[in-house]
Design a protein around this nucleic acid. Structure first.
Lengths: 276, 276
DNA sequence: CACTATTTGTCCGTATGTATG
DNA sequence: TCATACATACGGACAAATAGT
């Protein structure tokens, strides 16, 4: 009548430690407390702590030296690709050049109600649906689902979809892209996204929903994107403009997309601007 | 020698259904297939399907009517508080007025290495650390951890911290807030954040890290924020500016923070601008 | 007003994974 | 490593609620 088992403790402990390492709360290079201490701190048995540490070691976040201790190797792989909100189009073109795309699905379907409404389609109208995965050096980081009204989608081919950024295709087709409205949130990975992004189900993901309109306010593209937060993040720089009365901040063109494969620590603005 | 038990099936199934509802793939108001059908579809026993549906029902996403079926109530509650990136300061003041704050922790500490470096502190220097929870109508939606260099932090009191936005306090203390650099990502809830935000451990969270600097480029505030994605999202409106050569997009002042408690469907730009 | 088919709700026994000491 | 306690998942059986005939 004693052992009240509470499952998921190994996973829970793993998540906490992983987060502390990612945040830098546990400095890179430092030695973790001993297993008994960690066990006490997290109210967990030593076996459970070991499972958590094993998982961290397997992912290369810590190194276990028998008889010595467990050492943090660093937030290491956390090298988010930067996104520049003040120059989205240029950014997208760069992305197109520096990353590879895999086209997972392509076809014309009757979209779910919410998307149909967003695109301004009548019930039963079809849209072109494409599912793509973007990867960089073979490592996938985004899972993209796009819906385009059928009349617009028919102006380019499936093969082009697999290589060129969608915005470029739309422009080439004569669509005057004018506005976009987007919302950023977070979710857990479902089975499809998890497989495509090489993650476990239940892993955290950044989610982006964007609705693009042309000059006349007609929706031309609905995008639902899921990003691996360890490989992609949204970064932006804000600057106070105007006098005290206005108190406005406006985004500043930050440095271009940088793929620092080593450190996410705020680097002192290199201001490497590539566009006009 | 038969039942190869695969754990976490209930959670997996729950995630799939939850995602389909959120995406609108299962229309709001519609009736789900019967439990045996769902069980077959997901290769899961009926008991497991029930657990998944129970969880959905508990979160108010579906309604279970005995003898009739299970009905989707809709993506319903996904009513994110809007954030306006082009006028952050005004937005923050509004937040201060419309939301309540709980101060969970307050004190002077030696910050973790990463934060110390970001703030430009020498090793051993202390900072003022505050942990706050923002809630709206009693429902918590953000978990904020701020670090301020000691010299700056001493210019206001703990009581003021519990009521006023930090940026206001800094300004009042004579700090010329000029720039900020922020990064948006996603994580899973650890024990502290989970408790504060009334979530289960492992729930998905939006994360924001912001470093605020004054006119001379000295860091004055380091913010680490965690948001419940079902109650808070970042929204922004982008507009194409300039001719084809430049191809620049710039954020547009969108409508002020709206707490639409019903629908997240893109409403046709009301353009209710409050500031200059 | 029964009668029936369908659906959710409850319970059991068993096999296996998870956490503990 | 091992024995023990608990949790998860399974298949099956039966009860209760509902809607239609």
């Amino acid at each position: 009548m004693e052992g009240a088992v509470e499952p998921f403790k190994a996973r829970r402990t793993y998540l906490v430690l992983r987060d502390r390492i990612a945040n830098g709360a546990i400095a890179a290079g430092s030695r973790l407390p001993g297993e008994p201490d960690l066990a006490a701190e997290h109210s967990v048995s030593r076996v459970t702590i070991r499972r958590a540490l094993d998982q961290l070691a397997q992912e290369g976040l810590v190194e276990r030296r028998p008889g010595v201790g467990t050492f943090v190797l660093g937030p290491g792989l956390i090298a988010p690709t930067v996104v520049d909100f003040s120059d989205v189009f240029t950014h997208l073109k760069e992305m197109g050049r520096r990353t590879e795309v895999r086209l997972l699905a392509f076809g014309y379907v009757v979209p779910p109600a919410a998307i149909a409404e967003a695109l301004g389609l009548a019930p039963g109208d079809r849209s072109q649906r494409a599912v793509r995965v973007r990867q960089m050096a073979g490592a996938p980081f985004s899972y993209l689902t796009t819906h385009v009204p059928e009349r617009v989608g028919l102006t380019y081919s499936e093969a082009e979809m697999a290589t060129l950024p969608l915005l470029s295709l739309l422009e080439r087709s004569g669509v005057k892209v004018a506005r976009a409205r987007q919302s950023i949130g977070a979710t857990l990975a479902g089975p499809e996204a998890a497989q495509a992004l090489q993650l476990e189900i239940g892993a955290p993901l950044l989610s982006l929903t964007r609705l693009v309109e042309d000059e006349e306010g007609r929706p031309v593209e609905h995008l639902h994107a899921l990003y691996r937060p360890d490989r992609f993040a949204f970064e932006m720089q804000l600057q106070r403009t105007g006098a005290d009365g206005a108190r406005r901040w406006s985004p500043l063109p930050p440095q271009a997309a940088a793929h620092t494969e080593e450190n996410a620590a705020p680097r002192k603005a290199k201001n490497r601007k590539a566009s006009t």
